[in-house]
Design a binder for these strands. Structure first.
Lengths: 255, 255
DNA sequence: AAGTCTTGTTCATATATGCGAACACTGGTT
DNA sequence: AACCAGTGTTCGCATATATGAACAAGACTT
């Protein structure tokens, strides 16, 4: 899930630069040199030079005393541009709005990247109790409906040996996960019953814009608001949303 | 506006790494090694090593042939985290929604950084003709209502000698800009009449959460939909929105 | 108020990177 | 089929960075 230094030869300080940005992005908040050094494991003096460079460039900011660091304003643009440049996210935009409206629940758009799902777009519900996931966040694929829907679309999904446990319901045995993926294929959509976040269930389907699929959409709903009827309703709406996106993609490719 | 290499000593490849990310973020799209080399001016072989490193780490992606580069998924999270970690943007969220609803026009939240305004949040209007600015984008302060509102709040604003011309209406003379900032102070809000984008007018006020102010909000509207009555209406709503944000900030600090 | 601990900062040198030039590929042209 | 122009890729040496250890500056304890 993370990109450690040892496995990746390359330009060392470039690797460390992005590791630093990634650290700030994940943790959010302000950190001292020592805290960063403990987290990343690089020598203090090297970090010091790196941080000074990034502060000078506006990618990292310090507090008035100059000893606490956090992400800077220049880093802002970078994330937005990945999304803006992606045709699929743009195409799905209206349908995601529609699905959020139709279900009244939180809707996500995610993409598979190695063993993780990356959240590219989200529509938080208006309930006070709502699952919120920051765009750009990486989550282990096997614990989410998005990830399971995407893995199920692969003829031979590559699974980690060590499937990280997120909650007491997370599927952590590769064989068990493979059985679950077969159920996903039979059922037509993926379900996550509090496997990633306690109290939250998700329903996901993969978008068949390419095979194997890379993108998926999901509806997340607190378990407390869920019953059988609601579940059938949501999965039906989810399938409709998929149709809409695939339809508009088709007409984009064949005008 | 940009951070060139010559002015900034520091870790060279860290500087280049973020310059590369910034380049991809600004341009959006895919570029060959040669194109990037022409734009940034670094030696081809150095760029090659850098790009390979960043591709390996997922911060840059290539097309199937491996010769066209674009921003990668790992860069996504970085931008979102600056916004999420900022208390003012979070606090303004509901009021921005309200202002967008009340005016029916595009609403922006921006922050002054040196000579530029950085857009931190936006509510695009639902008109077909709507001004859209990507979050994270930097724009020369003197050409925007956000920037003029913020500069007007400083007792002694630092202005560039060379105020870049964006449109035929951009104020490019420092003395003329100083006179305009006095008008902003007298009037109580800043106006941009097609000074940044042809056909688009903006109205902005600075948030007085600290002095001098750092943040401002604005309403952008196509000149074609603007008349005197509408202008009075919009500036009144803008002032109300400012009150709301300052009010909630006050109650956040003094609970 | 001295001592001790923690954290930020500087420095000299071993080490990794940056660089230009040479090489390899590709697609188009004669 | 040979040539050419443009581009991506590799290589060895000059150069810049990374590093541990030493130093400085506070903060807390006794």
């Amino acid at each position: 899930m993370d990109a450690s230094e040892g496995t990746a030869p390359g330009v060392k300080s470039a690797t460390r630069t992005v590791a630093l940005l990634d650290f700030f992005a994940r943790q959010g908040g302000m950190y001292s040199l020592t805290e960063i050094q403990q987290e990343l494991g690089y020598p203090k003096s090297s970090l010091y030079a790196l941080l000074r460079t990034l502060v000078q460039l506006g990618w990292v900011e310090t507090d008035p005393t100059g000893t606490l660091y956090r992400i800077g304003m220049r880093a802002l643009l970078v994330g937005a541009s990945y999304i803006d440049g992606d045709p699929v996210v743009g195409m799905a935009h209206e349908t995601l709005d529609w699905l959020a409206e139709a279900t009244g629940e939180t809707v996500h758009f995610g993409r598979l990247d190695d063993y993780d799902v990356v959240y590219l777009s989200s529509r938080p519900s208006r309930h006070n109790l709502r699952p919120v996931i920051r765009v750009g966040r990486r989550v282990a694929a096997h614990s989410t409906s998005l990830g399971k829907a995407l893995l199920a679309d692969r003829p031979d999904p590559v699974l980690r040996d060590d499937l990280e446990r997120q909650t007491e319901h997370t599927i952590t045995e590769p064989d068990e996960l493979r059985a679950e993926l077969r159920r996903v294929r039979d059922r037509g959509h993926a379900v996550d019953r509090e496997e990633n976040t306690p109290g939250v269930c998700c329903f996901g389907v993969a978008l068949r814009l390419r095979r194997p699929a890379r993108d998926a959409i999901s509806v997340s709903i607190p378990a407390i608001r869920l019953d059988d009827a609601r579940e059938r309703e949501i999965s039906a709406l989810l399938l409709q949303a998929r149709e809409r996106i695939e339809y508009s993609a088709y007409h984009l490719i064949h005008p």
